[in-house]
Write a protein that binds this DNA or RNA. Structure first.
Length: 570
RNA sequence: CGGGGCGUAGCGCAGUCUGGUUUAGCGCACCUGCCUUGGGAGCAGGGGGUCGGAGGUUCGAAUCCUCUCGCCCCGACCA
């Protein structure tokens, strides 16, 4: 491809809208342009990378025995009503009506459609197992799209669905996809971790997320330095320390008399503990939540953070919203910041870390007041204890007890074992070898294509621009003739260009009649791994210069060996 | 949805508080010519704006008021 003919609108200045480096660079390198919030056009360079990633996915999916299909983006409401998700999915589901006032939605995911297809087509165990996948545009009306195509509303996703006769088969399918995903992300040149994860609205019995570690990641990832335990922060279990001496000591402590103290204007744990000259560990935080089963309170130690997802799972509720100021006032009789469990007549649940605490401090359900020397059992009752707080770096691995690390991650892939959640409700069944009707067991497996690209840039860039890993680079080689007007330079450049094309190499030649500085800057910005720089000075000495984008290394090779040497690099 | 901020040329911004000497500006980009060719050059000339939109106040509105649309950030939420 010739640069002069290609639409590569690079930007010298940093776009105001971009927040993370991958977004900035994708705009600056001319890969994407925004049309509306969370909705982007892919320009030639961006599409080229997208196709490379898609092809890697296709190859590996096909290798695993999956078959590609293409399902509709527009889906009838009936199917979603049948699965129950028309109500469940909420505002993220983009709904609309056709000219006959029939209800439709733009598919945010395709469990309903694929299950419908399968229930119509599959009769016998002889037709199973099956794994179908597609690479398709989806739409989820995100509350807050951000970071360019990392969290868009319209986005390209590879989604696969497996169908098995029994649990053993389903587990095998799941394992196969796990391995396939590892291969895909390895080939994309990403440093990633597979972690235990939540199933969320997709549902199912267990799942793994594939996380690319990057500071800009939106998910917390917990992993052990000693063993291979790794989990999403919403999933990561708290290791319960066997309290030896400390526990004993605690038990021996006397319950002191509960007392109300003034804490004018002190609302946060930080403020209260400093004012009362105690450590945050001596406090218990009371958080009020609204659920579908009424208002409840969640308790954690002052220096701990409650995890709503864990609380939600613990209480098996679908809705869990931190109560607003009005609700808090209604329930506790005080503005938020002064809530406490004593004389609170709603169900109270506590983190297991609160269990051994004695003579602690809580809000007094009264403005500018806290209670000290509060004790469970004597002053209030707890309806249940659970693991409802976030893991911290000073916690230990729940499996092996060694130190753990918490990092940020970008979720690029997610695999779920669905079980019979959809096959049951949509009646996707088969006849087994004994002639009996059975539910098909399903799995579902997603990869965010755009997110994978963003993540690749987050991990592979420097101050000058993108540094593409070779397998997903839009071009493998960038030929940069320093002076387009010089015939010696241009003839040699064209020759190399054509030789590489003959060898099926993706090569871009910068035939623009621009000053060298402009071309060098653009070359670094768009990040093609190998730059072939052809200048008169080197050419006179029979040399051609090669610049490795990743490390800036400059190599000088003889003109007649340059093609072979480039082939070795690719 | 709550809080904050921003909409002025393709991009980045000034001007808005304090309405009128501004014919609405600057840098980059763009077009023409000259010049230049190893890290986003230089000179000269040029084109491009319903100041997000609607309504209002006023002799006069980018500037003040009301409504509205869009976008960004934080929070809540989320594969």
């Amino acid at each position: 491809m010739r640069y002069s003919k290609m639409l590569i609108p690079t930007l010298k200045e940093i776009p105001a809208e971009a927040e993370v480096i991958s977004h900035t660079l994708m705009l600056r390198a001319g890969l994407i342009r925004k049309l509306a919030a969370g909705i982007y056009s892919l320009l030639p360079l961006g599409l080229s990378v997208t196709k490379k990633v898609e092809d890697i996915i296709r190859e590996e999916m096909n290798r695993s025995g999956a078959q590609e299909v293409l399902l509709p983006t527009v889906q009838p409401a009936e199917l979603w009503k049948e699965s129950g998700r028309w109500e469940e999915y909420g505002k993220e589901l983009l709904r609309f009506k056709d000219r006959h006032q029939r209800e439709f939605c733009f598919g945010p995911t395709h469990e309903e459609v694929i299950t419908d297809l399968i229930r119509k087509e599959i009769r016998s165990y002889r037709q199973l197992p099956l794994n179908l996948y597609q690479i398709q545009t989806k739409f989820r009306d995100e509350i807050r799209p951000r970071f360019g195509i990392m969290r868009g509303r319209e986005f390209i996703m590879k989604d696969a669905y497996s169908f098995d006769c029994d649990e053993t088969g389903a587990d095998e399918s799941y394992k196969k996809m796990y391995d396939t995903y590892c291969r895909i992300f390895e080939r994309c040149g990403l440093r990633f971790k597979a972690v235990e994860a939540e199933t969320g609205i997709i549902g199912g019995s267990f799942s793994h997320e594939f996380m690319v570690l990057a500071d800009s990641g939106e998910e917390g990832v917990v992993f052990c330095n000693g063993c291979d335990y790794a989990a999403n922060i919403d999933r990561a279990e708290i290791r319960i320390e066997e309290k030896g001496n400390e526990g004993e000591k605690k038990k021996m402590m006397m319950m002191k008399e509960i007392k109300k103290v003034n804490t004018p204007g002190r609302k946060t744990v930080e403020e209260v503990s400093r004012y009362l000259k105690v450590s945050p560990q001596d406090l218990v935080k009371t958080l009020i939540f609204e659920t579908e089963n009424g208002i409840i309170a969640g308790l954690v130690r002052g220096d701990h953070q409650i995890n709503e997802t864990k609380l939600k799972r613990f209480l098996d509720s679908n809705i869990m919203v931190l109560a607003g100021d009005e609700t808090v006032k209604e329930v506790t009789g005080a503005p938020s910041g002064f809530a406490g469990p004593v004389d609170l007549n709603i169900a109270i649940f506590a983190d297991q870390g609160v269990k051994g605490m004695q003579n602690f401090i809580t809000g007094a359900n009264e403005i500018d007041a806290h209670n000290i020397n509060v004790n469970i059992g004597r002053d209030f009752e707890i309806k249940g204890y659970g693991d409802i707080r976030n893991v911290r770096e000073d916690d230990k691995c729940p499996r092996c007890g060694k130190d753990i690390d918490i990092k940020r991650g970008i979720e690029v892939g997610h695999i779920f074992k669905l079980g019979t959640r959809y096959s049951q409700i949509l009646r996707a069944t088969y006849i087994d070898s004994k002639g009996k009707e059975q539910l098909i067991i399903m799995g579902c497996y997603g990869i965010g294509v755009g997110r994978t690209i963003s993540a690749a840039i987050e991990q592979n860039h420097d101050e000058n621009g993108i540094i593409w890993p070779m397998p997903i680079a839009p071009f493998q080689v960038f030929i940069l003739p320093v002076d387009t007007k010089d015939t010696t330079v241009m003839e040699r450049s064209e020759k190399i260009y054509n030789s590489l094309l003959d060898k099926k190499i993706d090569v871009l030649i910068d035939d623009r009649d621009d000053r060298p500085g402009v071309k060098f800057k653009d070359a670094d910005l768009i990040g093609i791994p190998i730059q072939v720089i052809i200048g008169l000075k080197n050419l006179r000495e029979g040399n051609i210069e090669i610049k490795i984008r990743r490390n800036g290394e400059i190599l000088k090779w003889r003109v007649d060996t340059v093609i072979d040497k480039i082939m070795e690099l690719i």
